[in-house]
């Protein structure tokens, strides 16, 4: 089973959670339309320690170097980056739209805050997605309980702080339920 935490050695720094990193790319043409969202998701790797994270991350392209319509999904092991997953069904996400040129720095700041447990919302964080698009890039942070207002507000405040967003930056909360409709 690929979705179990990898082993770590005693001299590594264990993370609170193990994570899996996924990649997806929208395929143009007929084949792309035939493939489900699930079939487009490719597992890149898993990690359970800080050292394993850097080992994986340093071999990856930065988000700004990716082609348009490519996404990275970083989720806790055991949670698939899909609305349909049990952990996401009642959840939602903060959506941050970024003008071109900011995404690599913001993505790194976000995942370091997530791995380091800076959000302080217990089990609530599910994962993060970065989406490279034509005119802008989008970063999303998914959490379990969309109806928990104090948690979603706390996540928003931490997100704004760790991304170093200007007060005018637009942040929007979407429940997965709304996205499905």
């Amino acid at each position: 089973e690929v979705l179990v935490a990898p082993d770590i050695s005693p001299d590594e720094h264990k993370l609170q959670y193990a994570y899996a990193l996924w990649y997806s790319k929208r395929n143009p043409g007929k084949l792309g339309a035939l493939l489900s969202y699930d079939q487009n998701l490719k597992l890149i790797g898993r990690f359970a320690s800080v050292e394993q994270f850097w080992g994986l991350y340093s071999h990856l392209s930065r988000p700004s170097e990716l082609n348009t319509h490519t996404d990275f999904h970083l989720f806790k092991i055991g949670i698939k980056p899909m609305w349909e997953d049990e952990a996401n069904q009642r959840g939602g996400k903060w959506v941050v739209r970024l003008r071109k040129g900011l995404v690599s720095r913001c993505w790194e700041n976000l995942i370091l805050a997530m791995l380091g447990e800076q959000f302080m919302v217990g089990e609530e964080i599910c994962g993060a997605v970065v989406s490279i698009r034509f005119q802008e890039d989008i970063i999303c942070l998914w959490n379990k309980t969309a109806s928990d207002l104090s948690t979603t507000q706390r996540i928003r405040d931490t997100l704004r702080r760790v991304l170093h967003l200007p007060p005018t930056a637009l942040m929007e909360y979407k429940t997965h339920n709304d996205s499905l409709k």
Binding site: S9, D11, H13, W54, E117, Q118
Partner: peptide, 21 residues
């Protein structure tokens, strides 16, 4: 139990440790 919390600077410091390569 206790949550494992790491500051950004601490994580960045481990970036170049031999185990991270």
């Amino acid at each position: 139990g206790t949550r494992i919390v790491y500051e950004r600077a601490f994580l960045m410091n481990l970036r170049n440790s031999p185990i991270s390569q």
